[in-house]
Amino acid sequence: MDLDARFDERPVFVTGADGFVGSHLTERLVDAGANVHVFVRATSSGELRNVRHLRDDITVHRGDLRDKHSVSQALSALDEYDESIVFHLAAQAHVGESWERPYETVDTNVTGTLNLLQSIVDLDLDIAKFDTAGTSEEYGNVDSQVADKHDYHDDGRVMLNERSPVNPKSIYATSKLAADFLTMNFYDAYGLPGVTTRMFNNYGPRQNPRYITGTIVTQALERDIVELGNLTPKRDMCYVSDGVRGHMHVALDGNPGEEYVYGYGENISMREWTETILSVGTESGYWDDPEIVQSEDRYRPGDSDVEELLVGYEKLNEETGWEPEVSWREGVRRTIEWYANNKPKWYGRVDWR
Rank of each mutant, 00 (worst) to 15 (best):
W99Q: 13
W322N: 05
G134W: 00
A5S: 15
C238P: 03
G140D: 06
V240A: 04
A179H: 05
V146P: 00
A173K: 03
N109Y: 09
R163T: 14
D303Y: 12
H249F: 05
H24Q: 14
G243K: 07
L310C: 05
L278Y: 01
E47C: 04
V244A: 01
M1R: 15
K345I: 12
T135D: 04
P168F: 11
D122P: 01
G134S: 05
E83G: 13
T132S: 13
R6M: 11
I277F: 05
Q118I: 12
V280Y: 01
P11W: 06
P290I: 01
S241C: 09
R245E: 12
D18Y: 03
M248L: 09
D224N: 08
M248Q: 02
D124E: 07
V158H: 07
D107V: 12
E307P: 08
W352Q: 03
S136Y: 09
L54C: 11
T174G: 10
E308T: 11
P165I: 00
L48Y: 05
S23T: 04
T132M: 12
K234C: 11
E314F: 11
L252N: 00
I212D: 07
G191S: 02
T276K: 14
E266N: 13
L316Y: 02
M1P: 13
R298Y: 04
A340D: 02
A340N: 01
Q92C: 13
V36Q: 01
W338D: 02
P165E: 00
L278E: 03
E307F: 11
P193I: 06
N109S: 05
Y239R: 03
A34D: 06
V106K: 11
N208S: 11
L177P: 01
Y286S: 00
G254H: 02
